[in-house]
Nucleic acid binder design. Structure first.
Lengths: 222, 222
DNA sequence: CGCTGTATTGACCTCCTTCAAATGCGGTGG
DNA sequence: CCACCGCATTTGAAGGAGGTCAATACAGCG
């Protein structure tokens, strides 16, 4: 099924705001982000895409992308013709359900980010983001001993949390100082997940991993 | 179709976090909010529900609510058995599409809120929220001459924007002072929508009103 | 070896919070 | 009708989280 795969290098755009894609895009390797450009030119990252995540699954219903998607790290993207998706959703109820499950989890994640963004200090937000990424990476088997690849700049983290690069730096320093994380811009290690979760006030349940429908999807795509 | 309608007075809960509703809830009159309770006990409002909005349309796929829903003003809620919804989505492709359209617009709205929350000052956020509510109220015919009912406390606004009540008050004072809004806690009037939109940096497109599928839904429910 | 992009650190300033007190207002009972 | 109560609004003053500006260090790379 993996008919066309495209390599996108870090920083490159995958889908632009306003576009009307005819293919559905799926991240196979690497790391990407959803973002919106603000009137003042800033970039607001509203979600991260890791291997197994769809970029624009149901854009056909809304017609046009209301946000863009770009690669954070070098990534491999699969392009699946929309007809293929339509055929799957029409004729395979299980898969249809799995795809909508993924969309609804995206929505739940947005709610968690929003609650975080408004009501918590930046250091807790950062910790919360790391907890989420670790949980998701683990769910797709890309985590080993509390550690996973995370080639991301402090600039990107700032755009995701809505804080300045300078402050990102200070927070990372503090989290490192507390021994909560080990991070060098390439990969992230969490020595003690329980401690980080407690610090972040993290509650996995919004990721709905207990009934995760993604594993079969990844197998299916490869 | 409007078999069971329930009156919920301001402040009362409609659905609790963790619940597994067997009925789908639709707001017919009034105003409600989605919220998450933070570890520290604060309430984070992650969305407003106006007449025509569904509370828990596709909760069946995720299984349990990862957030709660409460009435902000006295509201009338319709409870539709899940089987009815399932029947509609299975046998009426148009309606199925409309329901998913509503879900995807919710998601787009969350992205807009998130981008707002992190990357803009509170006064612009507040203006942006008012722009959105006005646009949505207009879309369901509840707006007259730039004015609509908005019986909401400054506390609620604070929980939605993630700022203190004190600061909400100061911002409202400033917006009133600039002549951008007229607001008395009961209803909101926007004398000059263009000016407010410019101030807020508001771009309606994320609401996808051009292909709004909601009007027929409201008729259908009544 | 110089260039460019990222990380790090300091000093100062702004937005927003917290604490505290005052004002207004709808409802209720006398 | 008025006194009283609870709740939301309003306003002041002081403190903290994070932003902005700016300088320095550092690493990859042609």
């Amino acid at each position: 099924v993996c008919r066309r795969s495209r390599l996108v290098s870090a920083g490159q755009s995958i889908i632009n705001e306003g576009q009307v894609p005819s293919d559905v895009h799926l991240v196979l390797e690497g790391l990407a982000c959803r973002y919106k450009l603000m009137p003042n030119g800033e970039r607001s990252i509203v979600g991260f895409l890791i291997p197994g995540d769809f970029c624009d699954l149901h854009v056909a219903i809304l017609g046009r992308m209301d946000h863009g998607i770009a690669a954070i790290a070098d990534s491999r993207i699969v392009e699946i013709p929309y007809e293929t998706i339509a055929d799957l959703t029409d004729n395979h109820p299980r898969i249809n359900r799995a795809l909508w499950w993924a969309t609804l989890v995206d929505e739940a994640t947005l709610r968690a980010w929003l609650a975080n963004s408004g009501h918590r200090q930046a250091n807790r937000q950062m910790a919360h983001l790391f907890c989420e990424l670790l949980a998701r990476m683990k769910a797709v088997g890309l985590e080993v001993d509390g550690s996973f690849r995370l080639p991301i700049t402090q600039d990107d983290l700032g755009d995701a949390l809505g804080i300045s690069t300078v402050h990102v730096n200070r927070i990372l320093k503090a989290l490192r100082g507390k021994g909560l994380i080990i991070f060098d811009g390439k990969s992230l290690t969490v020595p003690d997940m329980d401690r980080l979760e407690a610090y972040a006030g993290f509650d996995v349940s919004y990721l709905h991993l207990h009934d995760c429908k993604k594993a079969p999807l990844l197998k299916f795509a490869t």
